[in-house]
C-alpha cells in the first residue's frame, strides 16, 4: 500500500494505482487511454503530482508512489 495526499486528504492506495484511476475515482468519469473522457465530453480537470503538471496523455502510465502529493483541480467561480 502507498500513503498519498490527494487534495489535502491522506489516502492509502494499492501499489500500481495510476493517476488515471484517481481521476476516475474523483470525477466519476471513465477515461480513454489518451486521458480524454470516454463519454466524449471535455473533462475540465488537471492533475499536479508533487507540484508538477501531469499531462493527461500520461495519466494512465503514471503510477502513484508512496508519499506523493496529488492535486486534482478544476474551474470554480472566481475573478
Amino acid at each position: 500500500m502507498h500513503t498519498i495526499s490527494l487534495n489535502g486528504t491522506t489516502e492509502s492506495l494499492p501499489a500500481g494505482t495510476t493517476v488515471a484511476d484517481l481521476v476516475t475515482a474523483t470525477t466519476g468519469r471513465v477515461l480513454l487511454p489518451s486521458g480524454q473522457a470516454a463519454d466524449g465530453g471535455r473533462l475540465g480537470v488537471a492533475v499536479a503530482r508533487n507540484a508538477a503538471v501531469v499531462p493527461r496523455s500520461q495519466w494512465a502510465a503514471t503510477a502513484v508512489e508512496d508519499r506523493d502529493e496529488l492535486e486534482i483541480v478544476t474551474a470554480v467561480q472566481g475573478g
Partner: peptide
C-alpha cells in the same frame, strides 16, 4: 474568468 481550485462535489463551489 474562472478560478482554479481543488475538484469538489460541493455545490456551493460550483
Amino acid at each position: 474568468t474562472v478560478a482554479m481550485r481543488r475538484y469538489s462535489v460541493d455545490e456551493a463551489a460550483g
